[in-house]
């Protein structure tokens, strides 16, 4: 729009409703004699009701209609339904815990006792100088042995050691950061491409398949940057693991 257009518009729009051009401007007591705090309170209550009905009633319903109409699957939570048509296996967007060797293991999670609990989404909220974050927290019995306890917490050191053991890495090998840090939501389904590559030989071995076969499936569930610039490439572990198990309807037929 050229600025000359705007000026024209502005002068054409000098309707009586203009707030700047209203009769009250410049007069010393524009409120008039009928102004009262009672009247203003009543207006406040009416405004709460009227605007409330619009922003809390009409607006979410309009969005609901648009969403359900245009993007039904996503508006309902991007659910993955098994081949039987009823059992829900998860949501494409939410991670699940996979500890088994035949699976690509997702990031550790701080959401709920079992991890990946969508009703308790959270990170660890531990800072970089936290002893608990680095060394973990392990309850010991009188003899100094580890005992199981809900307050036990694996630190970065524990997670690094476990990752190296699981994937046959040497002690000097550095571990991808995403593999040993907990995400902000505790629901992150994604791992880095480097992390997936390190896990790939183990998964192939456990499943008795060639690494190339597995790699093809990994590539399929690797998401690049949005529009080529936003974010980091990542692998969706839930979709990948379900595909490996043949549970994804689209993959099951292969």
């Amino acid at each position: 729009m050229k600025s000359s257009d705007l000026n024209q518009r502005r002068s054409a729009d000098q309707a009586p409703l203009l707030q700047t051009d209203r009769a009250g401007v410049g007069t010393p007591n524009p409120g008039g004699k009928d102004y009262s705090i009672l009247q203003e309170t009543l207006t406040s209550i009416l405004a709460t009701v009227v605007l409330g009905l619009i922003v809390s009633g009409l607006y979410p319903l309009v969005v609901w209609g648009l969403g359900q109409g245009l993007f039904h699957h996503k508006a309902d939570g991007s659910l993955i339904v098994a081949a039987d048509g009823t059992t829900v296996l998860g949501s494409e967007l939410l991670g699940q815990n996979f500890g088994g060797k035949q699976y690509f293991n997702p990031r550790p999670s701080a959401a709920g006792a079992a991890g990946y609990d969508p009703t308790a989404s959270s990170g660890t909220n531990l800072g970089p100088t936290s002893d608990k974050l680095i060394n973990g927290q392990h309850k010991k019995d009188a003899a100094g042995k580890d005992v199981t306890d809900p307050s036990n917490f694996d630190g970065i050191k524990d997670l690094v050691a476990a990752y190296r053991t699981a994937n046959g890495l040497k002690d000097a090998d550095a571990v991808p950061a995403d593999a040993v840090t907990r995400s902000g939501s505790g629901m992150d389904p994604h791992i880095s491409v480097a992390n997936a590559q390190l896990q790939l030989p183990r998964v192939a071995r456990e499943r008795g398949k060639s690494p190339d076969e597995i790699r093809q499936i990994v590539d399929k569930y690797t998401e690049g940057r949005d529009l080529g610039i936003f974010g980091e490439p990542h692998v969706n572990t839930l979709l990948l693991n379900l595909a490996l198990d043949g549970k994804l309807p689209s993959v099951a037929g292969k």
Binding site: L133, D171, P176, V180, T181, D188
Partner: peptide, 15 residues
């Protein structure tokens, strides 16, 4: 033993 160039991923989302 964490890859240094990955930065501080604690509390961050992979995507």
């Amino acid at each position: 033993g964490v890859v240094q160039t990955d930065g501080n991923m604690e509390g961050k989302e992979m995507r």
